[in-house]
């Protein structure tokens, strides 16, 4: 559930309906994923899930899976 909503946010941010997003996806896998897109993405994720990612975790996500786990912890929607 979180995974699918997260994938939808990615598709919106990168304007790509066909974007496939898995836990293993990293910045290197998505064209256009730079620091600007990352901040826009975090902003959209925080809006979509109504969560606030703690400051210290912001720079810590190695891949989409870690971001997903963080969202699940924060929102109890796992």
């Amino acid at each position: 559930m979180v995974q699918e909503r997260l994938a939808q946010v990615f598709r919106e941010i990168f304007s790509d309906d066909d974007l496939v997003v898995t836990d293993a996806t990293t910045a290197a896998d998505v064209p256009g994923w730079d620091s600007l897109a990352y901040i826009n993405l975090i902003y959209a994720v925080e809006n979509e899930f109504a969560v606030q990612i703690p400051d210290e975790r912001l720079g810590s996500f190695a891949n989409v899976g870690e971001l997903r786990v963080c969202i699940e912890e924060l929102s109890d929607v796992g």
Binding site: E12, I13, S15, N40
Partner: peptide
């Protein structure tokens, strides 16, 4: 429109 909508529209 929020930032995400605007950004996508700006891309179009």
């Amino acid at each position: 429109g929020d930032l995400t909508c605007w950004t996508a529209a700006a891309g179009v």
